[in-house]
Design a protein around this nucleic acid. Structure first.
Lengths: 250, 250
DNA sequence: CGTTGGTTTGATTAATGTCAACGCACGTGG
DNA sequence: CCACGTGCGTTGACATTAATCAAACCAACG
C-alpha cells in the first residue's frame, strides 16, 4: 500500500459516530451519498416484503462495509439497520471513487464485495436445504470464524447481540421455533448460552453437525487486511465490541 | 466507451464454444483461469451440501458473466453448470484485469456484480419469507424481466429450459411440491405452460400475487449495456436462445 | 411497582416432505 | 418397426416439520 493509499484511507475515516441499536442507517429507496463502515456492534441488511415480513440478509460486523452500491447503483434496494448499538464511520462517495482508482484499494473493495456475496450464497443454501437445527448451527459456526477474524471471539465463544426474533427473521423460521431449536442444541451440548454470550464447547462437532465448510469465507485470501484496516481507524481498539446488552447478563 | 475499450472487449471474446446441457463449466475447488460469458442457453451456480442436496443459487442467462471471482479469489466456493445447451465464450483472466484498469469497463463489471448480488438477496427473501406458490411465481416474474432485457422474451412469454427438479432445487422445495404448485398456478390462470414455453397471461396480476417489485434488478441503471455487449459478440444474434428441448413440444 | 421486550412452553393447525406408483414421450438397439 | 429403458411429469396416501395461537414468565427500566 502506498503512502497515497494510506493518506486516502485515513482521510476517509473521519467522524466516527455512535448509533443506538435498532436504528436504520439507510432505507430502501434512499440514494445515499456515503458508505458506512462498521467499527463496533452488529448491523444487518434487511428487506420487508409486501406481506410485511422481514428477512435479514446479512449480518454486518466490525470491519464490514455497509454498502458499496453507492458508486454505481442509483437506489437502495434494501435497508440497513443496527441490531446492537454501533460505532460507524461515514465514507463519502468521492473517497470510494478515488479508492477505485488505486489498484491496491480497488482490489480490497472487490475482495470485500465478493466475499459478502459468497456468504450470501451460503445463506441461500442454508435456507433452501438445511433443516432448522442445522441451519441455526451453521450461522453460529460462520459467525465464530468471522468474529475471530476481527478479534471479537475469545476461544470458541463470542457475544451475539441478537434477539431470537431477529435470528428467526434471519433464518426464515418463526421465533417460537428458533427458541425450540436453541433449546435442543443446548440440550445436545452443541452450544451453551449465557445471556448473549455464546459458547461452542466443541467447534469441530458443531461444524460437522451443521455441514459447515469455511471455504466460502475465503479467510486465507483476505489475510489480515480487514483487521488491520480496523486497527488503523480512530476510536477502535480492534478488540471490544459493544456489549451494552450482554454485559448485563448472568 | 473509447476505441481502446472496444478493442479490448472484442479481443476478449474470441472462440465461442458450445457446451451440452447438464455440464459443469467450473467446479467447487477449481481455480479457474478464465471467466465465462454466456451467449446462449441457461446455466446456473449451485452447491451440493454435505448431506448431498443441491441448491441452485443463480440462473445465468445470456449476457451474464459466470464468475468474476477469478481475479481476486483463489478458489471456487461453488460450481457452475449448464442447464440447457449453451454457447459460451471464455474470457482470459488477463483481459478482465485489463478491463479493471479502464474506468468505463470497470464500472460495467461492478454493475454486473452488484446486480447479481441484488438478485441473490431477493432470492434469499424468497426462500425465507414467501410461501411456495408466491415463491415460484416470484422467480417467474423475475425471469420475465431479465429475459426481456436481453431480448429473449416475446411479449409476456419465454422459453424456460428447466426441469421441475431443477426448479425444486432452486426454490428449496421438493419436486413433488413444485409440481403441485405449478398446477395450482395454472389452475388459477396465473401462468400457462406449453412444454418448456411459459406464458404469463396477466403479468401485473402475477407480480401482485408474488409480491414482485422489480427495483432490485436495477434495470434503469443498466440501460442497454448488457444487450449491446451481447450483440457485439460473435455468433450471437441477441435473440434466439437454444430451444433444443422446447421446440419439440406441443 | 407497572410496563415492556424478550424468552419459554403447550396445544393445535397448516405447509411441505417423503414414499410409492404410474404414465407418457423419447431415443435406442434389436 | 417394435420393445425396452430412461427421464420427466403427475398423482395419492401418509409422515413430519415448522407455523400459529395463546399464555405465562422473567428481567430490566422508568
Amino acid at each position: 500500500m502506498s503512502d497515497d493509499d494510506r493518506r486516502l484511507l485515513d482521510s476517509a475515516s473521519q467522524d466516527a459516530r455512535t448509533v443506538p441499536g435498532r436504528t436504520d442507517l439507510i432505507r430502501e429507496g434512499d440514494n445515499p451519498a456515503d458508505v458506512y463502515l462498521i467499527l463496533e456492534g452488529f448491523a444487518c441488511r434487511y428487506k420487508i416484503t409486501s406481506g410485511g415480513k422481514r428477512q435479514i440478509m446479512a449480518y454486518l460486523v466490525p470491519g464490514d462495509f455497509c454498502d458499496l452500491h453507492v458508486f454505481v447503483l442509483k437506489q437502495m434496494d434494501h435497508s440497513i439497520g443496527t441490531l446492537s448499538p454501533c460505532k460507524v464511520v461515514k465514507i463519502p462517495r468521492e473517497s470510494i471513487l478515488e479508492m477505485l482508482e488505486r489498484p491496491k484499494l480497488s482490489v480490497a473493495l472487490w475482495l470485500a464485495v465478493l466475499t459478502d456475496m459468497a456468504v450470501l450464497r451460503e445463506w441461500l443454501v442454508n435456507l433452501g436445504q438445511r433443516p432448522a437445527e442445522e441451519r441455526v448451527a451453521h450461522v453460529l459456526c460462520e459467525l465464530l470464524l468471522r468474529l475471530r477474524a476481527v478479534g471479537l471471539a475469545s476461544g470458541d465463544s463470542y457475544a451475539l447481540p441478537v434477539t431470537q426474533v431477529e435470528l428467526a427473521d434471519t433464518m426464515g423460521l418463526s421465533h417460537v421455533h428458533v427458541n425450540r431449536v436453541l433449546r435442543s442444541l443446548r440440550k445436545n451440548g452443541l452450544i451453551a448460552l449465557h445471556g448473549k454470550n455464546l459458547v461452542i464447547p466443541d467447534a469441530a462437532r458443531l461444524n460437522a453437525f451443521s455441514g459447515f465448510n469455511p471455504n466460502y469465507l475465503h479467510l486465507a485470501e483476505r489475510g489480515s487486511a480487514r483487521q488491520s484496516a480496523l486497527q488503523r481507524l480512530p476510536g477502535s481498539d480492534g478488540d471490544s465490541v459493544n456489549t451494552d446488552r450482554s454485559s448485563a447478563e448472568k
